[in-house]
Amino acid sequence: MAGSARLCVTNQKGGVGKTTVAINLAGGLNERGHDVLFVDLDPQGNATEGLGLLEAYDAEPPTLLDALVEPSAVSPSELVYDHPEMDVVPSNIDMNAAESALGGESDGETRLEPLLESLEEDGDYDVVVVDCPPYLGLVTDNALLATENVVVPALAEPTSKRSLELLFDYVGALEMDHDVQIEPRVLVANRVENTKEADHMIDWFEEALPDVPLYRIRKRVALQRAFADGRSIFGVEEETDMQSVFLEIAATIEETVFEATEVPA
């Protein structure tokens, strides 16, 4: 993983605000002075939309899927779009076929790694942020194995217990199969409300993952407005108290992922 720090944002449970966390974490890293590459692996393309690149979702080949399935036929630089805060490899409607296409390849779960290496060589990035699909499978396997660092968004509600248990069981099996170590770096309790249920879940998060830093993101209209504007909350003029939280998360990534990959913080 020389050249850039890498992390993926994943939770197989949908509706947890995964993409919002990914975009604003990337924005926070950029705000702290880092050159960021954002890779949208989600076939739904929510991050692609949230970064104002919806036209890329319906673009003609070469696409991200082409680069994963037939890498020799694609120049990685063709996949990169400019954004005011970061470079972006958008998702594409073709990614809906990724699970079946990669399933036919003997190394289908490790195709992202060499692609990221090529992109890093071209772009000289400090950090790569990968937004995963809201399910487990070959596409998410690629993200986990290529980055080996995980940011986990979760809602402060009881359903998160089972989803986190399933995720970490899955990661453990992947580690054994590929002889790697995949580290949970940050747990983001997202859309936290002032309820006793939320308080109980925060306590559970802290007890279940005592060594993983926990951050609380509260629901703010500013986050929705920034998404609609195609930016992170650091790329718009409106300020919110959640900016400081995302900057804290970015600082934690510097102290853990950056340190492990010898990237200057």
Rank of each mutant, 00 (worst) to 15 (best):
G15Y: 04
A189M: 10
T195I: 10
I249Q: 02
P43H: 10
D199W: 05
V221F: 02
F168T: 11
M86R: 03
Q12C: 01
L37V: 01
P184M: 08
L115R: 07
A59F: 06
E237H: 00
N11R: 01
A251K: 13
I23Q: 03
S232N: 06
V9D: 00
L166V: 14
A146R: 10
F227Y: 05
M242A: 14
L102S: 00
T63F: 02
E121F: 07
T140Q: 06
A222P: 04
T159E: 09
Q44W: 07
D229V: 07
V180T: 15
F234M: 04
L65Y: 07
A59I: 12
P158C: 03
A73D: 13
V236G: 01
A173M: 10
T252D: 15
A226T: 10
V127I: 15
D179C: 09
C8H: 01
D203C: 02
I217M: 11
T20I: 04
L54A: 12
V128L: 02
L167P: 11
G235E: 01
V236K: 00
A226M: 04
K18I: 03
P134S: 08
V129M: 00
C132Q: 05
A226Y: 07
E70K: 14
T256K: 11
A173L: 13
E262L: 12
R191T: 12
L64V: 14
D241S: 14
L25I: 15
P90S: 06
H178C: 02
A47E: 10
L155K: 11
T48S: 10
P90Q: 00
Q243K: 14
E207S: 15
L53P: 10
L68H: 01
M242Y: 03
P114V: 03
L144N: 00
A260H: 06
T63W: 01
S160F: 02
A146C: 14
N11D: 04
D141I: 11
Y215W: 04
L79W: 00
T252C: 09
I249D: 01
K161S: 02
D203L: 07
E183I: 13
E259C: 02
E207N: 14
Q44Y: 04
D177H: 06
E117A: 15
V152I: 15
E206C: 04
V88L: 08
E148M: 12
M1F: 03
G235P: 06
K196I: 15
N190M: 00
D229Y: 06
D124S: 14
V128T: 13
V180E: 13
G15H: 11
G27K: 01
P264M: 03
A260F: 05
T20F: 09
D66E: 08
N142I: 05
P264W: 08
A228Q: 12
L53E: 10
A47Y: 09
A260S: 14
P134Q: 13
E60G: 07
G137R: 11
L29P: 08
V9H: 05
I23Y: 07
S160C: 06
D211Y: 05
G28K: 03
L136V: 08
R6N: 08
T10W: 00
S77H: 07
M201G: 00
R231K: 08
S4T: 07
D122C: 05
E193G: 06
D87L: 13
V69T: 12
V188K: 09
G103C: 02
D126C: 09
L167M: 15
E78C: 08
P61V: 13
K161P: 02
T256S: 13
